[in-house]
Amino acid sequence: MKLYDYVLSPSCYKVRLMAALAGVKLDIWPVDFHPGAEHRGPELMALNPAGSIPIFEDGDLVLTESSAMLVYLAAKAAQQWLGNDTAMPAARVQQWLSFSHRLTASLGAARLHEMLLRPGNIDALRGQGTVALRELEAGLIEQRIRGQNFLASDRPTVADIACFPYVALAPDGGVSLDPYPAIRLWSRAVRSLDGFIEMPGIHRLHELKPEPGPEGGEA
């Protein structure tokens, strides 16, 4: 399975993260998105006329939408991540997968504007991002009241992976996460999962490792 990847892209990171959690090894093809704009070059445009990354290939299958890539990886290697055993979680997974595109269009665009100088109406993008974060916070509050710590059920699904990166990186676009305690707890739960990997802007949870001993050995 081959992933055309950019290390600073949260959408590419979703796929890397899902693969790591599912124990799938990806063949990573780094794309010079910035400054080289290689994703707009003839080779990648031939593969994905939309001119976006990630692009995912497995044999004849070519995917250009990250949510589809998450579902494919889960269906192949970690079916419990699909969250589709019963109607309610299955619908919630779809709800949040669709919702995740609003995060990309708002928080993601604000981040590209603030970090890599892409055009955009920054105030409008931040406003839309805040609306989305409030919806997510409310959804997570309700899940916690139901005794569930993840978006669609009591265990993580592709929906969590679809929403997590742009949310965690909201401060990169100048949108603070301070007002959202439930998002904070959920983000920590995602970052604590076995097999979790980081991307630039999302730091390691150092508390998961014990304090090194005074002699430099493990305590």
């Binding site: 794309v31 010079d32 080289g36 630039p200 802007g201 730091h203």
Partner: peptide
Amino acid sequence: TDLIHFQQTIFVQDRS
């Protein structure tokens, strides 16, 4: 591209 990505990784880790 790997060289670019390595250095971008390092710098963006510092950014936050």
